[in-house]
Design a protein around this nucleic acid. Structure first.
Lengths: 184, 184
DNA sequence: AGCCGTGATGACACGCGATGTCATCACTAG
DNA sequence: CTAGTGATGACATCGCGTGTCATCACGGCT
């Protein structure tokens, strides 16, 4: 038998989310989380850089985006490439986890520090997309606009998606149509 | 004569920026700032909610945006309204302060926590614009897209502006033209 | 079987950010 | 002259985050 129970990270994450839902993020201390997970405070910070990170650690979307950006056939139309990426991400990372994402969203919205962390996540994804376009030969200004547009489409649609029962990509397509009309 | 020297906030802000430039944001402690300003730590947190806020306190742009959004003649074309707002903000809040803004930008870029705070500022401005459009009768989805587009134009142009010697609004107009072409 | 390196964890100390609370004192109104 | 106001100082306290060293299971090697 092991000296320690396995799955330390999973236990920490589950204990943290439970406590955040029960009593709020700010009111939950790291010692409370680690006590419920059967670990010590020091161990928490070995797994997560700070208290917020326990809610953001599992995010593989940037890596996924980087891979898809690199693997797309050369010469693919950039806007089409973005839409295909959004379609894949929406179908694999968002639609199947709607309930879990709703819980997470409610926690994040309740605390300004978590909102900030969420915005940084969005900025990081934008940067992944932007630099990937630059690497594919797209001019920097256009690459930045493509990345920002992708984020606008994703996050504007995200809110509407969470409060509806539609598929995320359907909302995204509607949002894009509206965006084209708005800017013209 | 006063018991305390006047302009506590100004002294705190100046001392803070000096120290951030000299030795970095993370390496500067609040007691160091207050010592240079001739005050105590407790007083710092009476003026600023947290250590980062000393760099963000003077921002009147959201109030300015809210006022301009409310005062625009009814029925103004939304995109034109955004461009006029950007033109005014660029000419009054950005172009005359380019050197100061460069210093601030370098400090902010050097620390993840400051980047996050900057992203929240951007999100707050977007929300001001969005809700103002909703109040003017624009549909929520379109209002959100208008606000996000304004932020995209402003911040994508912002970086290019800081590294050039052009006027910000000139860059914004070029960015908008590129955006229209990119999305079409 | 015995030894040893590795890696995760516990235990402890500590600095800094941030807040609550009360005292102090200049200024002002009356 | 007095009472109220408002900004600041002084002090205590809590929680986050980090550095450091000891501990101990595991797996590989001899």
């Amino acid at each position: 038998m092991s000296r320690w129970q396995p799955d330390a990270r999973e236990r920490l994450e589950q204990a943290a989310i439970e406590l955040f839902v029960e009593q709020g993020f700010a009111e939950t201390t790291v010692p409370q989380i680690t006590a419920r997970a059967g670990l010590t405070t020091r161990t928490f910070f070995r797994h997560y850089a700070d208290k917020r990170e326990v809610l953001f650690a599992g995010d593989e979307i940037p890596e996924m985006a980087a891979r898809m950006m690199a693997e797309a056939p050369e010469g693919t139309d950039p806007m089409r490439q973005i839409l295909e990426g959004l379609r894949t991400v929406a179908a694999t990372r968002f639609d199947p986890r709607k309930d879990e994402i709703r819980i997470r969203r409610d926690i994040v919205r309740s605390d300004p520090g978590l909102v900030e962390r969420d915005l940084r996540k969005r900025a990081a994804l934008s940067e992944v997309i932007r630099s990937a376009f630059v690497a594919r030969g797209i001019w920097p200004l256009r690459a930045a606009l493509l990345a920002e547009t992708a984020m606008t489409l994703l996050y504007v649609s995200f809110d509407e998606w969470l409060d509806s029962d539609r598929d995320l990509f359907d909302v995204i397509e509607k949002t894009l149509a509206e965006l084209r009309e708005t800017i013209a």
